[in-house]
C-alpha cells in the first residue's frame, strides 16, 4: 500500500517533496537553522575582540590557515542562502496568488509584526549581508571610513605578519554611519530570527503543547542574545574601546 503512498511512487518522492508547500517549508527551516548556527559561531569569533587585538588577530589568522575548511563552510552557506531565498520567493508568490482580492479591512489577528514581515526583514538582511561581505571580507572601498582595510597589517607574537582585523573593526565602527547601519542590520536579522526560529521548529514538526512555551522563549531569547552580542561591539567602539589601535 505504501509503495503508492498518496498515489506517489517511491521514486517520485523527492520531486513531490520539493513541489509541496510542506517540503518547501522544511527546506526553509533546515537552511534557516543552518545559517543560524553560522551566525552564532560567527559571534563567538567576533566577541574575542574584547580579549584584545592579539587574540582577535591570531584567531582570524588561524581561521584563514584552515582555508579548505573555510571553503566548505562558504559553499554550504551559499547553498543554504540560495535555497532559503529561492524557496522564500516561490512561497511568497504562491501565498500572494492565494488571495487575489484583498480584504477592505484586514486585521491579521494574532500575527506578530515579525511574522507578518518576514519577506521584508529577510530581503533587508540579504542587502545588509552583501554590504557586510564587501566591507569586511572583500575589503572593498565602499566602507565610508576613508581607510583602505586591505593595507591594515599586524605582526603576531610568533612573528608572522597578517591582516589587522582589530584595527579594521575599530576604524570601521569609528564612523557613526557605519555603526548605526550595522546595528540596524543585526537588529533586522534578530527581528527575523525571533519569528524564524519558532517557525522553523513548527515547520519541522518539532513542537507540541508541552514544548510550545519553551520554543517561543528559546526563539526570542536567542534573538535577543545575538542582538546584544553583535551590537555590543560598535557600542563599545563608540564608547572609546580600542581607539589607541588607530594611532
Amino acid at each position: 500500500m505504501l509503495r503508492k503512498a498518496g498515489g506517489i511512487e517511491a521514486m517520485k518522492l523527492l520531486p513531490q517533496f520539493f513541489h509541496s508547500s510542506l517540503g518547501k517549508k522544511y527546506i526553509m527551516a533546515i537552511t534557516g537553522l543552518g545559517m543560524l548556527a553560522f551566525v552564532a559561531v560567527h559571534l563567538t569569533g567576533n566577541l574575542q575582540i574584547f580579549l584584545g587585538p592579539e587574540v582577535l588577530d591570531a584567531y582570524a589568522h588561524g581561521l584563514h590557515r584552515a582555508e579548505e575548511l573555510l571553503w566548505v563552510i562558504r559553499v554550504c552557506l551559499l547553498v543554504f542562502i540560495g535555497l532559503h531565498i529561492s524557496m522564500a520567493v516561490v512561497l511568497t508568490l504562491g501565498n500572494r496568488a492565494a488571495r487575489p482580492i484583498p480584504y477592505e479591512r484586514s486585521r491579521l489577528p494574532g500575527a506578530s509584526h515579525a511574522a507578518r514581515t518576514m519577506i521584508w526583514s529577510g530581503s533587508m538582511v540579504a542587502v545588509f549581508v552583501a554590504y557586510h561581505l564587501l566591507h569586511h571580507s572583500a575589503k572593498a572601498q565602499v566602507s565610508l571610513t576613508g581607510h583602505d582595510f586591505a593595507t591594515f597589517q599586524t605582526t603576531l607574537a610568533d612573528g608572522t605578519t597578517c591582516h589587522d582585523v582589530f584595527r579594521m573593526v575599530v576604524a570601521g565602527f569609528s564612523q557613526p554611519v557605519v555603526s548605526v547601519f550595522y546595528i540596524v542590520g543585526v537588529g533586522l536579522l534578530c527581528h527575523h530570527l525571533s519569528h524564524g526560529i519558532e517557525a522553523a521548529f513548527q515547520s519541522l514538526g518539532l513542537r507540541n503543547r508541552v514544548w510550545d512555551a519553551a520554543v517561543r522563549k528559546l526563539a526570542s531569547g536567542a534573538a535577543w542574545l545575538l542582538f546584544v552580542g553583535y551590537a555590543s561591539i560598535p557600542v563599545a567602539v563608540a564608547c572609546g574601546y580600542g581607539r589607541e589601535a588607530l594611532n
Binding site: 498518496g6 498515489g7 508547500s21 517549508k25 492565494a98 506578530s112 515547520s203
Partner: peptide, 30 residues
C-alpha cells in the same frame, strides 16, 4: 492509513491553490 492520508491530503491542499503556512497564528486566533 496515516502515511497515505497525509501525503494525499497535503497534495490536494496544494493543488487547490491554498497558500503555505508562515506560522503567524491568525488561524488559531479566529
Amino acid at each position: 492509513e496515516r502515511e497515505r492520508r497525509v501525503l494525499a491530503m497535503v497534495r490536494a491542499m496544494d493543488d487547490a491553490g491554498f497558500g503555505a503556512c508562515t506560522v503567524t497564528g491568525s488561524c488559531e486566533a479566529v
